[in-house]
């Protein structure tokens, strides 16, 4: 019984992986916005990224 369950589970995992890959899913978190004004192309400064105040790493060991 465990083997049958595992087989079903395995096919589900493979199917899920194929689905995710085919539909272009990603493991990265990306912020999606809609209706960005066309003026950005002419005036890039008019767009403000939500990541604009990122505190970068400057250390090293």
């Amino acid at each position: 019984m465990f083997r049958k369950l595992y087989l079903a589970y395995g096919f589900l995992v493979l199917g899920g992986t194929s689905f995710a890959q085919y539909h272009g899913w990603s493991l990265d978190r990306i912020n999606q916005l809609k209706n960005v004004p066309k003026s950005v192309r002419d005036n890039p400064g008019s767009y403000r990224s939500v990541y604009g105040f990122y505190h970068h790493y400057t250390g090293g060991k």
Binding site: I30, N31, Q32, N35, V36, S49, Y54, Y57
Partner: peptide
């Protein structure tokens, strides 16, 4: 280091994907 604010923008629909990436290398 260099930090880059990116936005991939669809010219026709105005849909955008906004993300920031850092490239840093210390040794």
């Amino acid at each position: 280091w260099i930090y880059l604010n990116f936005a991939l923008i669809n010219q026709d629909t105005g849909q955008a994907w906004d993300f920031g990436r850092e490239v840093s290398y210390y040794y």
